[in-house]
Amino acid sequence: MGHLSIGNVLLIINVWIAATQNKILVHSEFRPDYTYYPEAGGWFKVHKVPTNWNEAKLKCYFEGANLASPVNDQVYAVMRSLMLVQTGPVFTGVHVLDPAEEFKSIEGVPLQQLRIQWAKGEPNNLNNEEHSLAILPDGTFADVRSDKVLPYICYRKETGNEIRSKDCGTFAEGHELDPASTSCYKYHYDCVRWHRASMICAAEGAHLVILNSAREAQLMIDKFSKKPINCNGNTVRHAAALFHIGFHNVGFERSFWFTVDGKRIEDSGYSEWSENEPNSLTESCGGVNRNHLGLYDIDCSERVPFICEITDPKTVFKTNDY
């Protein structure tokens, strides 16, 4: 196990004191669910809900950040201070795609330039399957399997380009206010599964769109029916016609369809099914057609574009699961 210098110990203590006394000075504005650390020149967030490394990478990305890596002494000191209250390993952004290659941070910084202090017996690449690095509660590092389920740390380096939408309250680009409904909408042209779409919307401070009226349903067609689609060259059965939206059923009980805010669709304001819909016992997620009104049931694993909605910009980031 490596040993910290006195200077590094003092740096960690100073970071911890500044955080606990709430004396952190914010020079720019970023998501309020992140905490700014001037010593490291950026914002950090510990996600307590565990997931695998790839999911963690995506969640940080869609929040406008990266999985944190010890790219310098200051960032490493903050990561160590955050680990003081952790009881187990936490994913970092240091990873290797091929065991024949070397570890690098998300930003591409090679292992020999990172501030890494290995735990005893590490790295050991157990069974040639440990391709990600985790930081331990004592601040040392171990290689772990990427499919292991762990908490993780996101980091946003301050760039001065952090811009919060005046109308929509989010830092994610592309959300546009509809004055008539006072909601903000964003069309995502990438074809993804329903649950991935829901995660991306949540990371942006939004949710999959919930249709509250025939007017809003028509608005989705008017605004987004001609938008491009990116399915990466894959032939997807429904991609040309459907969007993912924010409702699904529970446990294949076909009588119970709920919106992502927990209401039955009959109480959401718009529950008109398209002709012959719902029509499949295996289609448990909600969609809407690009070309005409009416709800569709769709296989949750179907890859189609999706629409995010911010219902009330004043409440963006007010609740989360972190």
Rank of each mutant, 00 (worst) to 15 (best):
G7D: 12
G7N: 13
N8Y: 00
N8F: 01
L10V: 09
L11A: 14
I12P: 03
I13M: 09
N14W: 00
A19K: 15
Q21C: 05
N22S: 12
K23S: 04
I24L: 14
L25M: 12
L25V: 12
F30N: 02
G42I: 02
F44C: 07
P50F: 08
W53M: 03
A56M: 08
A56I: 04
L58T: 10
K59V: 11
A68V: 01
N72M: 06
Q74G: 00
V85Q: 10
Q86F: 01
Q86M: 14
V90H: 07
F91A: 05
F91Y: 12
V94P: 00
F103N: 04
I106H: 01
E107W: 00
V109L: 13
Q112A: 06
L114R: 06
L114F: 07
R115S: 11
I116A: 03
Q117G: 07
W118A: 06
K120E: 12
G121L: 07
P123E: 08
L126D: 12
L133N: 02
P137M: 10
D138W: 08
A142G: 02
R145I: 03
D147R: 15
K148Y: 00
L150Y: 14
K157I: 06
T159W: 07
N161H: 04
N161R: 04
K166Y: 03
D167A: 13
D167H: 10
C168H: 08
T170Q: 08
T170A: 07
F171P: 04
E173F: 09
E173K: 11
E173I: 10
E176H: 05
E176F: 03
T182Q: 14
C184H: 09
C184L: 08
Y185M: 05
Y185Q: 03
Y185G: 10
K186D: 06
Y187T: 12
R193N: 07
W194E: 04
S198P: 00
M199R: 10
I200H: 01
C201R: 01
A203W: 00
G205D: 02
I210V: 15
S213Y: 09
M220C: 11
D222I: 07
D222M: 05
C231F: 09
V236K: 15
A239S: 12
L242E: 03
I245H: 07
H248L: 15
F252C: 04
V260S: 02
G262R: 05
K263L: 09
R264A: 10
I265F: 01
S268L: 05
S271G: 12
S274P: 00
P278F: 08
G286V: 12
R290T: 11
H292W: 15
G294F: 06
Y296M: 03
D299E: 07
C300W: 08
S301Q: 13
V304C: 02
P305T: 14
F306W: 15
F306A: 02
C308F: 02
E309Y: 04
I310F: 01
I310P: 07
T311V: 13
K314V: 09
T315R: 11
K318V: 07
D321A: 13
